[in-house]
Design a protein around this nucleic acid. Structure first.
Lengths: 316, 316
DNA sequence: AATTTTCATAACTTAAGGATATATTAAAGG
DNA sequence: CCTTTAATATATCCTTAAGTTATGAAAATT
């Protein structure tokens, strides 16, 4: 005897409501519809579900048994509905995000922390990579969103790129660095110190080279290279080295007293930090939610940086 | 987001089977039917349930969540189906039976015991009454089946009456009774002993009067009256009283050595023991099963009595 | 690259399920 | 006891889901 679960759900509603009319109302259906469904069910089963000719509708034993299963079914569909609502509202699911290591560690991870507080049931899968690899990963469907610096006019048409910050870099050092305490800083001062460079394949490395070249330093001493942000910061802290970092990264570390930016205006890379995704792939709700959260966070970060800007004197 | 539980059931089957084709086969449906149901579900939900363009069908997170609920739903419908099968097979439910007290206690209760062993999930609600009241109870829908002696041609057309035994009575006494040990018994012998009579409103009481009148006793001494079978047997055991009982009752007690029948052939009542029910009421499966069980039991009882008959010499 | 397997689509048919209007019927009340 | 009232059953119509077979498209496999 194959049975339609929705019939059992209806049955349980009628039993719970104590009548067809009220049951139908509870279900949001018309009374005749429910009446017919019940009587079709009765003929299928071959037994009455309600005693004949009793006006306060009296369920039979079988009816009560089936209604109990109907309640289970209703509970399950209810849970399913809520799961769907949660999922389509972007409050559950997974967002797979990747980006440049320095950015992810220095900026995004802090934002992810806040996101997790607000949406604890969204899982964030994070990985690292630079632009080319990120695009491949996006196209392969391995990640949903990339966060990286890119030249705005170098974005292929199958990608969407939303800029979130200008790609501004600064020269950074430990707060204990001799230059950090100098009030008036000359460009020549920095030539004496060794440099920490990011991995050679990173865009930041390219930036660093250009910056130094821009201020006339072509032959610079590299004391450490290739590390992640934490490595870089640790080495900076224990040495007199300098490095080039995105201003946003330094900005967020500043109040932790682990990094400072030297007030030297250096060449802007032509890139913009932004959110990259495939335009032809439907975005899952959790990804949309995450992306918008990141955008909003960057908007407020951008505002904070802007204020800071007005209170700083940059030389060059 | 209102969701159809059967869709979730289908979803879980597809996920469990690992593909549309196998899932459809498991459900006993065609592949296109299942395919369309899934895709309709996807458009309703607004999210994919299976990743696009992956040939070993890969369920999304949401899909797995929903499929889990689908499993619950499937389990519930399965339980419901089995409950229905059991019920319609007469293996669960309730049968409300009533009958003459002496018969119910002396014969039917033993049969009910056997029935309960075979069908432990059928509940028997037993009550007592004589023909008129039983018919009222049947008509009021308070009982499903009556077991009572009735004249075959006195059955109103709205009732069905199946005879199960001829309404044969015997004179009964305790095995320790003086007459029980006598080998040759004369009719006059019984005149000396007091009588136990059933309740005055019972058909058996009428039988007793007729029997005694038939053998010439009009003025008989009543030592006890109105009790149930157990009372009657207890009083018989502790006294020299006689009584009239249905032969079937005595027959079943005989091997317990609590009652014996005197080998005196007495007048047969014109009634027949039978199963009475309303012909216009649909019988619930458990009632059918019980009724058939009782009929079959009486058939074999009837056979046993028949054999016993051939070995007994009845006088009159 | 061809083959195979699996899923999606098309077109059609049947049955279920929704609505409104109305007939029946059991319970209640004068 | 008969009338009233409230609830359920039925009638009719229409829309949509769901089943079928045949067929097209696409991913994996060889």
């Amino acid at each position: 005897m194959k049975i339609d679960p929705s019939h059992l759900e209806i049955l349980s509603a009628v039993v719970a409501a104590g009548g067809l009319t009220e049951g139908a109302a509870a279900l949001g259906k018309s009374q005749p519809s429910v009446s017919r469904t019940i009587s079709m069910l009765e003929t299928r089963i071959g037994s009455r579900l309600f005693e004949k000719g009793r006006r306060p509708l009296r369920p039979t034993e079988l009816c009560l048994t089936l209604a109990a299963e109907g309640r289970d079914i209703h509970a399950a569909t209810e849970r399913a509905s809520q799961a769907i609502t949660k999922y389509t509202g972007g409050k559950s699911g997974t967002a797979r995000v990747a980006g440049s290591p320095i950015f992810m560690d220095g900026v995004i991870s802090n934002m992810i922390a806040g996101f997790q507080i607000a949406f604890p049931d969204v899982r964030i899968d994070q990985s690292y990579g630079y632009a080319t690899k990120l695009m491949e990963q996006l196209s392969a469907g391995n990640i949903d969103l990339a966060i990286c610096p890119l030249k705005n006019d170098h974005v292929p048409p199958e990608y969407a790129f939303e800029t979130i910050l200008p790609g501004r870099n600064v020269i950074a050092c430990a707060p204990t660095h001799p230059l950090a305490r100098k009030t008036s800083l000359k460009l020549g001062d920095i030539a004496a110190y060794p440099w920490i460079t990011p991995p050679a394949d990173s865009p930041l490395y390219e930036d660093l080279r250009k910056v130094l070249k821009g201020i006339g330093i072509t032959d610079f001493k590299v004391s450490f290279s290739g590390g992640s942000l934490v490595s870089v910061m640790n080495v900076l802290k224990g040495s007199d080295s300098l490095t080039v970092l995105p201003y946003s990264v330094v900005f967020l570390q500043k109040h932790l007293k682990s990094l400072v930016a030297l007030p030297i205006r250096i060449e802007h890379p032509e890139r913009q930090l932004g959110l990259l995704r495939r335009i032809d792939r439907p975005e899952r709700p959790a990804v949309v939610r995450f992306r918008k959260y990141i955008k909003q966070q960057f908007a407020s970060l951008s505002h904070s940086i802007g204020e800071q800007e007005r209170n700083t004197l940059w030389r060059k």
